[in-house]
Design a protein around this nucleic acid. Sequence first.
DNA 1: GTAGGGTTAG
Length: 462
Amino acid sequence: MAMLARSVKRVSPFRLASLLRSEKDPSLALQLFRSVNPSPEAKPFRYSLLSYDLVITKLGRARMFDEMEQVLGQLRGETRFSVPEPLFCQVISFYARARLFDRALRTYRSIPGFRCRRSVKSLNSVLHALLKCREYDRMDEVLDDFRNHANPDACTCNILIKALCGSGRLEDARAVFDEMPVRGIRPDGVTFLTLINGLCSNSMLEEAFKLKDDMVRVHGIRPDARVYASLMKGSCKVGDVNMAFGLKEEMLRERIELDAAIYSTLIHALNEVERTAEVSGLLEEMRENGCKPDTVTYNVLISGSCKKKDIDEAYRLLDAMAENGCKPDVTSYNVIMGELCKEGKLDEATDLFEDMPRRGCTPDVVSHRILFRGLCEKMQLKEAAFLLDEMVFKGYTPHDASIYKLVDLLCQEENHELLLTVLNSFRKGKAMKADYWTRMISLACKNNEFSSIELVDHLITS
DNA sequence: GTAGGGTTAG
C-alpha cells in the first residue's frame, strides 16, 4: 500500500475517494490524501467532500487528532461546499471517547465556520461528550447558549437526565423529566430507562417501580429487557434477590424477551448472596429459552468460580468460552488475575498477564493495577518497580494505596537503589500530579537518611 | 453518522 500511496499523483477526485476507502492504515490514507496536492504552486486538487470525510474519520478513529485537525483546517478553507453536520458529530464523539472535552467543545463552536448550521444534533453530541468527561457544569453554559436560537429535543433531555443522575441530583433529573411535556417534548423509551436506572442505582426503588408502571399506563411504552435489568439490579442492591426473580417471572408473563443480560444479572445476584446452588438451574432455563450465554455471562460465571477459590473451574470456563464462540475479553482475565493475586500466586498471575497478548487480549489499566497491587502486597518489590515503569510509560496511573505501600516498604528495607528507580519512574510520568511528587519525596525521606535536597539532586542529574 | 442495560478493578 505504501507503494501505491507514493505512486498516486494524477487521479480523479472520485478515484481518490475509492482509494481512501480501501486503505486501512490511517497514516497511509493521510499520505495518499496529501499526495495528490504536491506543491502549493500547482493547481489545487478538487477534493470531494467524501475524501475529506473518509480521511477525517480514519484519523479520528486512530486518535491521530493533530493530523485530523490539519485536514479539518483545510476543509474549512474549501468554499465549494458546506460541510454536513454529522461529520462534526463524529469528530465530537472521537474527542469524547478520548476524554478531550475541550477539543469537543472547540469543534462544536467551530461548526459555523464550515458553512454549516448547528442543530440539536451537534448540540446533543457535545453534551454527550461533556457527560462522558463528567464536565457537568459546562453543559449548562452550552445549553443556555443553544436555547437562544433553537429548541432541545428528547435526546437532549435524556443526556441531561443521565448527567443529573450521575451526579446524584435525582430531584433535578426528575424535574427535567416533569418539564418535558411542558416544553412539548414527549419522553421516549430511553428517557424512562435512563431515569429508572438513575433511581435504581440510588436505591430509590419505589419511585423506579412507579415510573415503570406509568411508562405503560400513561405513556404507552412497553418496558424492555434493559428496564427490567435495571430494576433487577436495583432490587439486588437493596438486598431483595427474590424481587429480582419476581421481575423475571413478570417478564415471562408479559412475554418480554429475556436476554443474556437478564440472566447475567441474576447469576451475579446469586453469586453475591452465595446462593450458587441455583446457578445451574438458571443456566438450564437459559438454554431452554434459546438464550445463549455471552461474554458477560461467562465473566459472571468466572467471577463466581473465583469467589469459590476454584481457579481450575475458572480456566475451564475460559476454554468453554472459546468453544462456544465468545471470546474471553480483558475482564475475563482481570477477574482470574485478581483472584490469583489474592491467593498470593503472583507468578501465575504474572504468567497470565504476560500471556494475554498471545491470547488476543491487550492488558488494560485495570490489569496493570491488579498485578501491581498484588506485587506490592506480596512484597515482590523489584517486580513491582519494573511494572510501575511500564505503567508510567503507557500512561497508566496505579492506585495511590499501592504506591504508598511500595515506597513505604522500600523505605523500611532501606533499599535506596530501588527507591530511586521508583522515583525516577515518577519523574517520567507526565500524568503524575505535581503534589503527588512532593508527597512521594517526603514519604521517601521519612525513616530514611536521605535528605530531600540530596534526592532531588540525584533525580535531576541522573 | 445523537441518547440507554448486565461482568471486573478502585
